[in-house]
Write a protein that binds this DNA or RNA. Structure first.
Lengths: 325, 325
DNA sequence: GCCAATCGGTGATTTTTTCTCACATGAAGA
DNA sequence: TCTTCATGTGAGAAAAAATCACCGATTGGC
């Protein structure tokens, strides 16, 4: 089998033959006419013959050039057609995003219309999942999940924001509880969490400077729930203090059904977008970019809300102190 | 229209997909496996997806890779088929060589069988021509001709050897002529040449140190002939001294029908192979190489023959001097 | 008929791409 | 387990391609 000439030279030949001009071909290929001219020279040298001859200002194909063109033109049109078809398929395929149910319901669903409006070409399809769902599943392009590093290196993980957790309970609990210190609070209250994040309270305690013994004792009196949904119901029912991602309790805090007297704690986990291996990176990155923007908007809202919350709460507690006095 | 990925990356993809292995593809493309691996990476990055996934020791196409392969494989097979077909046509086409009649008859024809045997793939077809024939004619691939620079630059001229001219005449003329000096000879003899090379005698005279006046006077007494054939007939008939390319009178000198007492003169012309524009350069070069080799063989034969000639001639002249004494 | 504009070719140089080498990693088979 | 086989990758070398600036040729407008 005879060795193929330089593919770029063939492309220059194809474009020049099709457009009838070196300059036009150069424009199409986004190079200077000199570059195309050189490529043609290379190709002519490869075959040892002339493919074009000068004709006035322009060029015309020689007999040999004419005999070469059909195959080359055809080959390149197939090539570009095949590549374009793949690109189209990639673009038109729906993008399947798996998302934990609680995050879906409390944060993503309210923003889905906007997301679809702003990234229509993504054709987003959202699938509810729990954290245990395998992010490598064939039919899932990406998974939104909270997790601490290290992340598996066969998946591209795009970190979106650090996980922020917050301790929440009904206003009634806080008024009956001493708020002198976190440690004192722990000693009196019932701690609630979700089974999927047993590290939440320990991380909170570590950040707040509460010793392990106090924590263990408090948790022994507490309860774990299967899902965030049950956890929140328990907290709303006044059963104790729940630890949960800020993002997922922001609604209750805003409505005043729950209060958060202590600062939000950053854990070493991150909310990340986990792209399945072999998935279109760019679409994932577009989605990640949107999510990050939206999350930072949410964070700003939450921050200002928490500030209001805390100031009104301090007014409340000072007035209750006044009343007690 | 979406921009085409790197063509070399597509070729690497095609070869890897077809052969099922990066290593095999690298071998086929005459590069290292690292190079192929990088090209694949480039292509995957272009589309933003994985085209292959690791499977045990090797690779297998992903669904997207499988969907891309047919078009790309097809395009490359068309490309290589088209190029191979052109190469085949170039190789199988007969090569038309135009050659002046005298050179053809006296030098090339005796060597044609050998030439065809040694370069069978050339499929040589020899056409008789005179120097006036247009070497740019469509049906002529190359022309063999004597000419002095400058050569036209739209044709590739491959010089084969400098033109060597020699003054020849019958032995009888030389014995009756004074050989004391070239000048003295010119004053007594009739100078013969061909109409196509009026510069031959002046160049000879210049090389031999003969003054223009003597030359002009001698040529006024001489004659020009249309073709070398007539010129030689005239010389053989003892009409005078002919000036001709050494190559074309070698036969007569060898047979002793003509003698050349003076050295062979190199002119500034060359015997060259003139390739028509747009003609397969490599075939022309193969032919030129063969011609050069053959010409240098001929030149060696002629040299040794001329040496024998001159030594026998000097013996003759010394014996004639003896006789005259 | 001349001038300006257009078009392609080319030498020298820079920029970009590609390749290689050497080593790393992971799977398979003895 | 150890060896072999196959691919991935970082750094640097090598090769290819592109650019820039200029040239000569051609042509069409004035």
């Amino acid at each position: 089998m005879t060795t193929l000439p330089s593919l770029n030279a063939l492309r220059a030949f194809e474009a020049t033959a099709r457009l009838g001009s070196v300059g036009e071909a150069a424009r199409e290929l986004h190079v200077t006419h000199g570059a195309v001219s050189r490529q043609l020279r290379t190709l002519e040298h490869h075959f040892g013959i002339a493919l074009f001859v000068k004709a006035g200002r322009g060029l015309v194909l020689t007999a040999h050039g004419r005999s070469l063109y059909p195959a080359v033109g055809d080959a390149f049109s197939r090539l570009s057609e095949g590549c374009a078809a793949l690109a189209r398929r990639l673009d038109e395929a729906p993008f399947a995003l798996a998302c934990p149910g609680s995050l879906l319901a409390r944060w993503l669903i309210p923003r889905l219309d906007r997301l679809n409006a702003e990234l229509p070409e993504l054709r987003l399809r959202v699938v509810s999942s729990e954290n245990e769902l395998d992010p490598r599943r064939e039919d899932i392009d990406a998974t939104l999940r909270f997790a601490a590093p290290p992340w598996p290196d066969d998946m591209a993980v795009i970190p979106l924001m650090p996980e922020r957790i917050v301790a929440v309970a009904t206003p009634e609990i806080w008024t009956t509880a001493s708020k002198a210190s976190a440690r004192a609070t722990l000693e009196r209250l019932t701690l609630l969490d979700t089974a999927s994040r047993p590290q939440a309270w320990p991380e909170w305690a570590a950040a707040m400077g509460v010793d392990d013994a106090t924590l263990s004792e408090a948790r022994a009196r507490g309860r774990s729930f299967e899902h965030l949904y049950y956890l929140l119901e328990a907290a709303l029912a006044g059963l104790g203090v729940a630890i949960a991602p800020q993002l997922l309790v922001a609604g209750e805090l805003r409505q005043g059904r729950l209060l958060a007297p202590w600062p939000v704690i950053e854990t070493d986990a991150s909310l990340g977008l986990w792209l399945a291996p072999g998935v279109d990176t760019r679409r994932g990155e577009r989605l990640a970019e949107w999510l990050r923007r939206e999350l930072s908007l949410t964070a700003m809202e939450n921050d200002s809300m928490m500030r209001r919350e805390r100031s009104s709460q301090s007014r409340l507690s000072s007035s209750s102190r006044d009343a007690a006095r």
